[in-house]
Design a protein around this nucleic acid. Structure first.
Lengths: 177, 177
DNA sequence: CTCCGGAGTTGTACTGTGCAACCAGCAATG
DNA sequence: CATTGCTGGTTGCACAGTACAACTCCGGAG
């Protein structure tokens, strides 16, 4: 509601400033997105679940991560990651190699097949999103992407570490952060 | 990657324009958000799962929706909604009333207790998000919220109908759409 | 060597979810 | 009115994703 139109019994909390409303909208809309994302992922590319896709994408972006890194980045339990990784390996999409320096850790790499699957799916997603974002001004796209990155980059969110390990910088869409 | 730095073997697809990169970033970051959201919801307010919270929020915003509306809006199966709704009703947070005009449909309403629970949680979330978004300029918040709304409002996403039923307009943060 | 802590795995249980089969009202048609 | 067909909702079933806790394995500090 536009702060001006509070005629019905909606908000008990007074909704102080527009920023508060914005914050709520952000939460709400992000959640809507999340829910729909999973649904559409299933239809769009049954070959790769949204989780798998995401993990693969992460590995493409920053090859040679450890399972723990993924867990931290996505706020997942290590057991979950372990299982996902096992599945991806069984499917031949990634490889696990033990770190010669520390036999506890296993470094993850995309296989060629994994890269291909990922690219196929990325391509499908890209066209879908392209269509969806077709009438957005490029400026808005860049800014939107920047906001999302900025939002997620918030240090308190993922007890990461993450940003200081090997690999080139994150896939930044502009200089926004 | 900033389109300028494609030195490693990452993208097979040439990544034509910056808009493409932005689109991918949007997908990726939205997904990261989604994953973390559920995790943090559990910690932040165990009393209300993210799903429940979302559905309650939807009902607060637009009271008297039908289960089908929720399903459409969130791209959920009607069975899923049915179960969620049952749970919420069991918990005494919402009420189902049969529409006198059509005995098939049941109209959903927040109970007082539901409204309170929702407000409690909203408050917690709001402070958390506030902290997180503390150093954002208000202008950016508004624009971010506007982008998200615009994104989700895309007609192809939810085969909604939704926007033309009773209830006052959606909670719009600015005039953006 | 022993003990501690970190990386991963496995057992278990639960939630969210979809699909398909179903039931129950409405509505149009013969 | 009886038949057919559509729409809203529920239930049975199966499965993915997830967390938590208990465990193994390895490396480092004492």
């Amino acid at each position: 509601m536009t702060a001006a139109e509070t005629p019905d019994e909606t908000t008990a909390v007074p909704d102080g400033c527009p920023a508060d409303t914005a914050v709520e909208t952000i939460q709400r809309e992000m959640t809507v997105f999340a829910r729909r994302a999973r649904a559409s992922a299933g239809r769009m590319h049954p070959e790769l679940s949204l989780v798998s896709y995401t993990l693969l994408g992460h590995l493409e972006e920053r090859d040679g991560r450890r399972a723990t890194d993924l867990a931290a980045h996505y706020a997942l339990d290590k057991s979950t990651v372990s299982r996902q990784v096992s599945a991806l390996e069984r499917a031949g999409l990634i490889e696990r190699r033990v770190d010669p320096d520390d036999h506890r850790v296993q470094v993850l790499h995309l296989t060629e097949s994994g890269r291909q699957a990922l690219d196929r799916v990325t391509e499908r997603r890209r066209t879908a999103f392209r269509e969806r974002l077709a009438d957005w001004a490029e400026e808005d796209l860049l800014r939107f992407a920047g906001y999302l990155e900025r939002y997620n980059a918030w240090p308190g969110a993922a007890p990461d570490g993450e940003r200081d390990r090997a690999a080139p910088g994150p896939r930044t869409v502009d200089g926004t952060h």
